[in-house]
Every structure is written in C-alpha cells, then in structure tokens.
C-alpha cells in the first residue's frame, strides 16, 4: 500500500507534485508582480503606478509557496542530512534509522500544522490584516495551512513507506535530492 506505484502512492505523489507546481507558479506570479510594480514606480511621470501593497503580496505569496514546497521535498528526500557515519552501520540499521527520522519529520509537520491551526484561529478572532491592502491575515495563514496539512499527509505516507521497506529488509531506492 505504501509504495509509490500503488494507488495510494500515486495519489500522494500527485498531490505533493501539484501543490509544489502551484507554489512555483505563485513564485512566477510574484516575479511578474514585482516587475510590474517596479515599472509602475519608475514611470510615475507617465501616469503609471506601482502596485499597492506589493511587499505584502510577496510575503503572502512566500507563505503559500514555502508551505507548498515542504511535502514535495520530504517525499523526494530533498532535505539535507549527513550519512557520513551511518554509512558504516549497514543497510538494516540504516533502514530503521530512516523510519525513526521519518517519525521525527511526522512529529515536526504535525506540530507545525497543529500550532498553525491555532495561529490561524487567532487571526480570525483578532481580525488582523496586512498594513496597506487590509488583506485578512487569517486567509494568508489558511493558504499556508493547506500546505501544512498536506505535509502531514505526506509525512504519514513516507513513514509508512519506510516502515514497509525496513520490514521487508529492503533499502529505499536512491532519489535525487540533497541526501548525502
């Protein structure tokens, strides 16, 4: 069940991938927005205008994009880690180390999502907004929360995947990423 080829696997991979692509597209939209705002500011004399709240929009976009990138990075093992010493421990121990670190990642993502939920509810309650656009911060948090929830789902799946490999006595295939 917890294999990338299974139905569950294909669903989770697809979910993380599309979310990451959405994050990337938001980055590109930010690039366009910043450039338009720069042009508007530079050509004030010709009646153009910068985009109001461009700095706030960049922050909100970042909040979405970075959360959106987290599931994909974990799924594809892109996070930086050091296997210099553990390489001498042999495959069986390493497979179980992976299970433990995946559990830590699950704990971290779940903690982040749990706390972010309460942060979001605070923002709804206190009605805080951004400075110029008066964009509700609750919505900005909610956009990040989507990524955080999917991060938890992916962390569950990845944990299941590494437990599966470890119990079968196999090692996970090497993936491109920052694993070293």
């Amino acid at each position: 069940m917890f294999r990338d080829e299974s139905r569950l696997g294909r669903f989770v991979v697809g979910l993380a991938m599309w979310l990451a692509i959405a994050g990337g597209l938001v980055l590109m939209a930010m690039v366009a927005m910043i450039c338009i705002s720069i042009v508007g500011r530079a050509l004030l004399a010709f009646g153009l205008k910068p985009i109001t709240g461009d700095y706030e929009l960049v922050s909100i976009g970042m909040g979405f994009a970075v959360f959106a990138f987290m599931p994909w990075a974990h799924l594809t093992r892109a996070h930086a880690l050091v296997s210099l010493i553990t390489d001498s421990f042999g495959p069986a121990i390493n497979n179980w180390i992976l299970v433990v670190t995946d559990l830590m990642m699950l704990a971290t993502s779940a903690f982040i999502a749990w706390r972010l939920y309460f942060g979001m509810m605070d923002k709804f309650a206190y009605k805080e907004t951004t400075l110029l656009l008066r964009f509700p911060l609750s919505w900005a948090y909610a956009m990040g929360f989507v990524g955080a929830v999917i991060w938890v789902i992916v962390s569950l799946y990845v944990l299941g995947r590494s437990i599966g490999y470890a119990t079968r006595g196999e090692s996970e295939p090497k993936r491109m990423g920052a694993e070293v």
Binding site: L44, A45, K49, T52, E56, L132
Partner: peptide
C-alpha cells in the same frame, strides 16, 4: 507626484489625498 513611504495605511491614505504616490 513624489514617491513617499508611509508607515501605515492611514498615512498612505493621507499621502494619496495630498497627491503623493504612497509607497508601502
């Protein structure tokens, strides 16, 4: 037409009313 930074929305509003270009 001056590009002026205002620290809050109220100041930016006022700058716009005064004819400046508020930069947040």
């Amino acid at each position: 037409g001056m590009k002026v930074r205002g620290g809050s929305r109220i100041i930016s509003d006022m700058l716009a009313n005064l004819g400046a270009e508020p930069i947040g």
